[in-house]
Amino acid sequence: METTPDEQNISKVILFFSDPQKIRESNTSIIKEAQDRGYTPIVTTINFPASILEKLYLQNDLDTSEIYFIDAISKFSTGPKSVSPDDRHIFLNTPSDLTNLSIAISEMLKRNNGKRILILIDSISTMLIYLPSVKISQFVHIISSKIRQIEENCTFLAVEGGLDPLLYSQIRSFVDDVVEETG
């Protein structure tokens, strides 16, 4: 699947397309591959609450103690009293707040300074529910640039067929590779 860089530790930004019915499985396989290659995953989730992803990861025998979360959906869907931030979790108020999302990514990177990082953004397709395409394109450009400057790695997850042609072509120009899930 190659959703993380090779052993040369070259910074890489990937757009990963998943079958809509398999997006959770794609998320899990990306995190498993990252951990298998020695990366510390930072999962930015707009699609599923962190608590759901943690249960999914545990069911798939992943070490959740070394997975960090930026959760942009839990507070929005269930209210601020439903979640408590800690060293491994940052909770945002709304999925449409890209400024605080960028700040949270920077904060998680600082917390994990010195580790090999893979940031997973789950998902670009879900962001389209809350934001116009132009804002998402700007966000992908900014995050891709930041990732390259600090020589880390990022995978943007999207639903196969879920991006309009203009947004796809813009994002394609910001990433190093596009991976389409097969089978």
Rank of each mutant, 00 (worst) to 15 (best):
G114T: 01
V175T: 02
F156Q: 03
T182L: 04
I105T: 03
Y130S: 06
K55G: 06
F139G: 03
S133I: 05
Y68A: 01
R148I: 08
R37D: 03
G183E: 12
I14T: 11
S169V: 03
K32H: 14
S169C: 04
G183N: 11
T155C: 03
M1D: 05
L62F: 10
N153I: 01
L92S: 00
E66C: 14
L98T: 04
Y168K: 07
G79Q: 01
K75T: 12
Q59T: 12
Q21W: 12
K55P: 04
S137W: 01
A34E: 04
L167G: 05
N93D: 11
I14V: 08
I119P: 00
K32E: 05
E107K: 08
E160H: 08
N112P: 01
F16R: 06
S145C: 02
C154Q: 01
K81V: 12
D19P: 08
T99H: 08
I67T: 07
I52S: 08
I105D: 02
I14D: 00
I103A: 08
S123Y: 09
S106L: 06
I171C: 14
D36A: 13
E151L: 15
T28R: 14
N47K: 13
A50P: 00
N9T: 03
G38A: 11
T3F: 07
S144T: 10
M108C: 07
F156S: 01
P165K: 04
I143S: 03
G38V: 04
N112C: 00
L92T: 05
